[in-house]
Design a protein around this nucleic acid. Structure first.
Length: 420
RNA sequence: GGAGAGGUGGCUGAGUGGUUGAAGGCACUAGUUUCGAAAACUAGCGUGCGGGAAACCGUACCGGGAGUUCGAAUCUCCCCCUCUCCGCCA
């Protein structure tokens, strides 16, 4: 949600944002409606003030004649006021609806483009492995090492179902435990949040309205959430935080549920796209300053990059173009890991910041140095998703004999040097 | 699943249908006092919208919506949420 004052004072900026993000909405409609809203508001207010002024004269004991005189004066006024209030109500409904559709303004550094194809590489790390043999994909390797069971996964869950088994599970636990230590050292408080949430939380993060079909819903109308960002942001809804607490840094860990509606032909095999996975997520609340947000954003990005670097997996980072940004996002980096068999990079993390777009919806505030209420700023970045991370890890670390070499930092957590 | 109690400002907590934007307390800010601080005392201290250069003025807001009334934090209805007790259950 943007501030209507900001929209009014910077219509060209917001229009450019709508265009850059390929959002379908006409800002002029909102601006015209807002003008009508303010006119109607002022009119109803002055009518009510007049009504109140006359009504005040009836407070004490009154003879019937004087009472009738005042009522006669009030009647037409009241009718007029009611009519105008009705009008205002209608305008307000439409106004709120439009306000929810206005996207946040992307940063200057965000490149133009309609889809992820136009994202731009900003950082490359690591040496892509060159194999002296024909490399296999993660499905073949993991099947052979009994780390995964897709057939039975499909039998039990259906399309995109999987079981992780044996060393597949042990490897996940090693990655998780290492992540706890790695991010714990960087000042994050671990959080296990509820993943069944009220829908209001999805409005808060900006996932709704818009992505309804991506969510599993319960029979009570609650949602199974696709990222712990949602409940963790909801944690502080309607709270007034003290600025001394900032920055608040949470490391969420949770299962993630995604219907992946409309992606039926994509990534139909393997662990890249599944309905159910686990994810460590970095979530940050900080003071309402652009500079602070930018600094924190770069920090969140580096945290994940450095985690990947410590595993020795080649990756690159892209800056997402306007069309690939979410409604509330100001700027976003995707961190993509090298997948040898596919000869391409695949996304494993997404770092974005929002300014006060989310906190305005969640009503997360603090008092600044001048004692004024401010909406905090919010950011998040994936720390590490499993099992998707296994795709790159397994394929990059495969050996000619079919074994998988465990990255050194994981060995204390995994207990072995090789799988197989 | 059954029964009950509640939702008021940054927090806590009063509130007979008519100067109630809302007592009191805490917190916060300024002043007095002090070498300084604490304490004490005095004063100030909500948010949105509109107008104004500003002081300030108008108006709305007591979970949300609808209603009764000249007038609603206060009465009625619906919804949402929280808590307590009973039941069931890992």
């Amino acid at each position: 949600m943007l501030d209507i004052k900001f929209i009014r004072e910077n219509p060209d900026l917001v229009k450019a944002a709508i265009q850059k993000k390929f959002v379908k909405m006409n800002l002029d409609d909102l601006i015209a409606l807002d003008e009508r809203r303010r006119e109607a508001l002022q009119l109803t207010e002055s009518l009510r003030a007049e009504q109140k002024r006359i009504g005040d004269g009836m407070a004490g004991p009154l003879d019937p004649e004087a009472r009738e005189r005042l009522l006669a004066e009030l009647r037409p006024l009241k009718a007029h006021a009611e009519e105008k209030e009705e009008e205002l109500k209608k305008i307000m409904l439409e106004w709120r609806d439009l306000m929810l559709q206005v996207p946040n303004v992307p940063d200057m550094t965000v490149p133009d483009g309609e889809s992820d194809a136009q994202n731009q590489e900003v950082h490359v790390w690591g040496e892509k492995p060159s194999f002296a043999f024909e490399p296999k994909d993660h499905i073949e390797i993991m099947n052979a090492l009994k780390m995964v069971d897709f057939e039975r996964g499909t039998k039990v869950h259906g399309f995109r179902g999987y079981f992780l088994t044996g060393d597949g599970v042990r490897l996940c636990f090693a990655i998780w435990n290492y992540a706890m230590d790695f991010f714990g050292k960087r000042g994050f408080t671990p959080v296990l949040p509820p993943m069944i949430v009220r829908k209001q939380n999805l409005y808060g993060t900006g996932h709704l309205p818009g992505d309804v079909e991506d969510y599993y819903m319960t029979q009570d109308g609650d949602a199974l959430v696709g990222t712990s960002e949602v409940p963790i942001m909801g944690m502080h809804a309607d709270e007034v935080l003290s600025k001394e607490q900032f920055p608040i840094k949470y490391l969420g860990f949770s299962p993630c549920y995604r219907r992946e509606a409309g992606s039926y032909s994509k990534d139909v095999k393997g662990l890249i796209r599944v309905h159910e996975f686990y994810k460590f997520e970095q979530v940050v609340l900080c003071e309402a300053s652009h500079e602070t947000s930018v600094r924190a954003h770069e920090e969140l990005r580096r945290n994940t990059e450095e985690y990947i670097e410590s595993l020795g997996i080649p990756y690159h980072t892209v800056i997402n173009c306007g069309g690939d940004l979410g409604l509330g996002q100001v700027k976003k980096y995707d961190i993509e890991l090298w997948v040898p068999k596919e000869n391409t990079y695949r996304e494993i993390a997404s770092a974005s910041y929002f300014h006060d777009f989310q906190t305005r919806r969640f009503n997360i505030r603090y008092k600044d140095a001048e004692g004024r209420m401010q909406y905090a700023h919010s950011l998040n970045n994936t720390a590490i998703p499993t099992p998707r991370i296994l795709v790159s890890l397994i394929e990059n670390c495969q050996e000619a004999d079919g074994r998988v070499r465990i990255p050194e930092v994981l060995r204390p957590y995994f207990g072995k040097e090789y799988i197989g």
